[in-house]
Amino acid sequence: MTADSRLSPSPETVNRLVVLPFQKALEIAFKSIQVRFFRSLITTLSLILAVAFLSFVNVGTDVADGMLASGQPQLRQALIQAGYDIGPEDTSVASTAKQRWIVILSLLVCVVGIINAQLMAVTERFREIGTMKCLGALDRFILRLFVLEAGMQGLAGGTVGALLGALFSLVNATVSYGWDAVAHVAWAEVALSTLVSVGVGFLLSLVGVLYPAALAAKMQPVEAMRVEQ
């Protein structure tokens, strides 16, 4: 216990940084999801539904585009009967304004749901967060852990939702228009729509965790130490 245990600013200050390697943070975040699987599932469920809906609508549009591009009059007719607003010169169907609004609304509702679920998760983990801070965690470590968890949930939930939505959309097209319709689908477009939906899910999850994670990170260690009577 000589001069090096002093705290006064010195050239060694650089060595005095506390760290949380990315690999380790990833590991902790993953375990945290694993252990609280049910809780994570609930948080992710609204995301899965919203992303599935988005993917369903987009893949539906892709299918309709494929039908239109086939140039077969009976498929074009089927689309018009199904309610698509197609002019004589159109080569692709635009999703209707109403559809877009419903998708946007469902995504908004989803974000609010995620914020709510994450706020509860933060409250449940007050003691854990405070303890980590007592062990030397910086605000940013806590932030990083929550964002990583949300990122993983977003990727997993987004993937599941996007695949479900795409699948359901294709099944729906087969039932409504027959095999013929699906035969003309541009699979690259469907894949792209699915990927975009995964990306949107990932982003929504991150947006949803931002405020709760900031709240957790700002928490004073002493608040977590209170023995509730």
Partner: peptide, 23 residues
Amino acid sequence: FELAWLRCRKIGYIFQTFNLIQV
């Protein structure tokens, strides 16, 4: 940063409620 370093390296805490990380 210095405060975090202090909590990490200079002081060990023990609590009535143990406060282990449950997961």
